[in-house]
Amino acid sequence: MKPARLRPLAQALLLPVLLVALWEYSGQQEWIPEGLLPRPSSVLATWRVWAFGAGGFGLNPYSGTWGPTILFSAHRVALGFLTAVAIGVPLGVFIGWSRLTARMVDPLIQGLRPIPITAWLPFSIAVFGIRDAGAVFLIALGAFYPIVVNATHGARDVRLNLVRAASMMGATRSQLLLRVVFPNALPAIMTGLRLGLGVAWTAVIVAEIVAVKSGLGYVLWDAYYVGRMDVVLADMVSIGLAGFLSDQLMLALSALVLRWKQYQK
């Protein structure tokens, strides 16, 4: 890598590295009790056992369970997110396109939207029990709002002249919807998907803390209860990493779908 490209990277890493070093040092000096805030080095050691340790019924119940734990959460995020996409995108495009749909559906969505997904927890457990379905429901609900709202905006934003151009070329109403309104809404839809995926990761942690017995959220709370702050911290970093990676995936997908955008001034 050239020095010119290395410099921004160095600038970005400077502050985090300093913070971690300070944290490590204050742990070594025992300014902060290890039981309250374990040092980065012990968190890393814990993570290595969690990720690569032998499974089975050893003294450490977390040993070797990191992979499956992340997969449990990722699976729920994927299910909930895809459900939200499958409902939110078509519905949003339709609300943006059809005034009748907007009048009938939009008030309902806007009315329910201020209820945070945390407030839906008891409802979700009552209806779905302590099962996956409850977690998936909460994730889908949380991701649904940004997805539907952005799709609505994207569809509503279509320029009159593009609609006119398509209709003078003989487009029917359904062709207008599929070949003009939908592609026109795609940039906004992709923004909605990105926001929705972020919310999905928030929702999965909340849901797993309360409503199921596996996944990163469950381990987070469980480790806190048995006083394993090292596991709590390793879990937090894992959640951040998973969220970051899925966001990068979304960005790559976005760049692929919106190839034509790169030429826009």
């Binding site: 151009a165 209709s167 003009v180 592609p183 826009q264």
Partner: peptide
């Protein structure tokens, strides 16, 4: 009664589909 391909329109701003 409605727009149709028998009457082609060239608009002032090109009105092309940027994604195509």
């Amino acid at each position: 009664h409605r727009p149709g391909p028998d009457r082609a329109v060239v608009f002032q701003e090109p009105a092309l589909f940027p994604w195509l």
